[in-house]
């Protein structure tokens, strides 16, 4: 990884972007997700049944990363919102790569989220591979982990993402 810019080397192995409780977990928002994917799991919908299983309705666990995405617009914010997985875009831009895609994802799920919760998410760059020829042109792969915690510090989950970046930004 000797060909990496120094700032990318400096990002490796530590939290670089921290998204701290930017959205409140709300049932109305997770209902939109259930509707989109057609998920009728009663734990997300049915109060009597979820009381027995999970004490109260829970947010679909696969939505965990969505609770660490800033609102796209806010009335009192001067700067643009952070992009979804901001660290990924920082890596892509620092390497002069035009396009990036997620190719593999792993989600390890712990404490479920409920209405009124929020998460703190730490984005950590784990690895950047050597430049290579890909099906979409010259590119590279890199790995980012995101650690999600609830306000009490308990672990909500860990997301590991494998990216493919391709195409050079014109000089």
């Amino acid at each position: 990884m000797n060909d990496l810019p120094q700032k990318v080397k400096d990002w490796l192995g530590k939290p670089v972007i921290i998204v701290d409780h930017v959205v409140t977990v709300e049932q109305g928002l997770w209902t939109n997700f259930c509707v989109a994917v057609g998920d009728g799991n009663p734990l997300y919908w049915d109060y009597p049944l979820s009381r027995d299983e999970t004490e109260s309705v829970i947010a679909p666990p696969m939505m965990l990363p969505s609770w660490a995405i800033e609102h796209d617009w806010s009335p009192d914010r001067a700067a643009p919102s952070l992009r979804t997985l901001e660290l990924h875009f920082m890596v892509k831009d620092a390497l002069g790569i035009k396009n990036g895609l997620v190719t593999e994802v792993e989600l390890e799920l712990h404490e479920p989220l409920r209405h009124g919760d929020s998460v703190r998410a730490e984005q950590i760059l784990r690895r950047v591979e050597e430049e290579r020829e890909t099906k979409l042109g010259i590119g590279r792969n890199w790995d980012i982990d995101v650690v999600y915690r609830k306000p009490d510090g308990s672990l909500a989950g860990i997301q590991s993402l494998h990216f493919l970046g391709y195409g050079k930004v014109a000089a």
């Binding site: 994917v37 998920d39 799991n41 979820s50 696969m62 997620v102 593999e104 994802v105 989600l107």
Partner: peptide, 30 residues
């Protein structure tokens, strides 16, 4: 997007298991 894919995979599995099925880990390659 990958979040929608994760949601569909979760739905596919819990449609089969019922609500007592608790997913601990999901790994997928697109």
């Amino acid at each position: 997007n990958n979040y929608t894919q994760a949601g569909l995979i979760s739905r596919f599995v819990t449609d089969w298991s019922g609500p007592m099925g608790r997913i601990g880990r999901l790994r997928f390659a697109m």
